[in-house]
Amino acid sequence: MTTADRRYHHPVSFTWWARKPSYLLFVLRELSSVFVAWFVVYLLLLVAAVSSGNESYQGFLEWSSHPLMIALNVIAFAFVLLHAVTWFGLAPKAIVLRLGSWRVPPNLILAAHYGAWLVISVAVAWVILR
């Protein structure tokens, strides 16, 4: 040790993400991916139940209306909404669209995402409910 480092290095706290609301929101946003993955599992269980016949489909419906399942899916829904809203919010940062010399304003790109979200959601609901 000839040249000792006399500088002070702040240790990174294990709970650094709890220090600021914006960091916490970031970690929650990242954790939304867990609920995205959960949805894939849930969807595949539904598909498997439907393709096994009416009886197993009714079984799935019963299982899905268990209070714990509903609670889990309400939480999951909150997280996927967080994902959707933050995702659309960040999209105009990455996407720079140009039509001729006109640069499409970020707000319009944002509005287009929300418009597409609405149209797709209504179309999916219509296919399922009609």
């Binding site: 600021k20 914006s22 960091y23 970031f26 990242e30 960040l90």
Partner: peptide, 9 residues
């Protein structure tokens, strides 16, 4: 970068 976004703030 994982887009925390705090740099821009």
């Amino acid at each position: 970068c994982t887009f925390v976004g705090e740099c821009s703030v």
